[in-house]
Amino acid sequence: MRRSAEGPEVKKRFGRNDRIFIAVFAAAAAMLLLSGRWRLAPGARVVVTIDGERYGEYSLDREQEIPIRIDGVTTNVLTIRDQTADMTWADCPDRLCVQQKAISGENETIVCLPNRVVVQVAGGKESGLDTIAK
């Protein structure tokens, strides 16, 4: 049953394979991160879906508080301010969606898993070029 802890791969802290492995993973993650950030064009509106079904669509230009109701009960409150959307209240126990920072870039999402609510930023009128020009 017992496996020896004195295997050759344990004795040395970092073998050659380990260094290569870590370098490849780190490089891949860095590339993914950078490519993802570049594509972040500013969005114009947020789309709220519940359980995969469209609930509503709201412009990021209009500052407002949007209660999200499921079967008449308010489960989440979405606040739009300064062109960003932020989940400011939720009835779920962990409130991970409330902790999440406000979103404004296209395709950015806030997800409330217990209520299956997804808030996603969609379609900006501006192109990526304007982002750089700002």
């Binding site: 870590i22 993914l32 991160l33 879906t49 999402t109 997800v111 898993l113 997804v118």
Partner: peptide, 27 residues
């Protein structure tokens, strides 16, 4: 699993961040 449950595959948008986080914490 989260993508399956909320039926929104755009949340894979967070994949790069989560991968990087996994590498750092795993390390």
């Amino acid at each position: 699993l989260a993508a399956l449950i909320v039926e929104n595959y755009h949340i894979f948008y967070y994949m790069p961040v989560l991968l990087a986080a996994g590498i750092v914490t795993g390390f």
